[in-house]
Design a binder for these strands. Structure first.
Lengths: 139, 139
DNA sequence: GTGATTGCAAATCTTTTGCACTAAA
DNA sequence: TTTAGTGCAAAAGATTTGCAATCAC
């Protein structure tokens, strides 16, 4: 965990309470893994692996459920780049991504380095929920 | 099939030859379904369904293989919007998409209606393969 | 013929679900 | 208590793979 990224004022417990999620042992532990460090892009499988490595007893199904609950609460953002694999981004602010096709890695693009101009109108009766920009790079 | 979209000069056979793909019965039939009409966004499952409806004997596995071969040959473009579902777009020109979150439908955004300005540099040693813009809309 | 292509079924992989059990309020 | 949350194992999809049979050249 990189000291540069510590977020001392964002306690997992408070985040869960604010989201109206009951702070269970598993949710607290996962929230700590997710938010007590730098922003990251992580898959359910990876997070489950980290939990196991930290001796946190949690099932993969609960990891999935929790990731979706956190996403629903606005604490995470789900990003899909690849058929059949979702990443969850702890950075929920408006920003975009590089996708390294070779390694499958995802990386934030600093917000000011991409701009979408002339976003079209949403079709009649609908509204724009989000604009995702994925810049795919490879060797 | 909309008469407005016919592409009389683009015969499936020629497209396959140009791509260096042996024009088998299955590839020819799938190419006709894909390219003899308007541009479309289609999943493997949907294309297989259409083939069956047209009495084309082809397995789902072959549909997957063929879609990937066509994509590799630049005849299709793969688009991922949803974990666990790929669409293939017969329009390979530079353009972007609306994604209707409710219905799961994908729709082209006319090219001039979106512009990405200030695309960032690709990281050292890599090059940008593509920039995907997905505008997610919902009620 | 000969090697590329296909079909089929089985395997894989990610994600979701049903239900009895456990824990938070 | 009472109800939300969890674990487990099984189910559900989507996609890939292995291999014998088939087809294009």
């Amino acid at each position: 965990m990189n000291a540069n990224c510590q977020r001392p004022f964002s306690h997992a417990l408070d985040r869960l309470r604010a989201a109206g999620l009951r702070p269970t042992r598993q949710r607290l532990a996962l929230a700590k893994l997710l938010f007590d460090g730098c922003d990251r892009h992580i898959s359910a499988e990876q997070l489950h692996g980290e939990a196991v490595a930290h001796n946190i007893r949690v099932s993969l199904a609960t990891v999935y459920n929790t990731l979706h609950q956190f996403t629903g609460a606005g604490m995470l953002r789900e990003i899909v780049v690849d058929a059949g694999r979702s990443y969850f981004d702890t950075n929920t602010s408006d920003h975009h991504h590089f996708f390294y096709e070779q390694s499958g890695r995802l990386e934030d693009i600093p917000g000011h380095m991409v701009a979408v101009s002339k976003v079209p109108e949403a079709p009649e009766g609908l509204s724009i929920r989000r604009v995702d920009v994925i810049v795919r790079v490879a060797g």
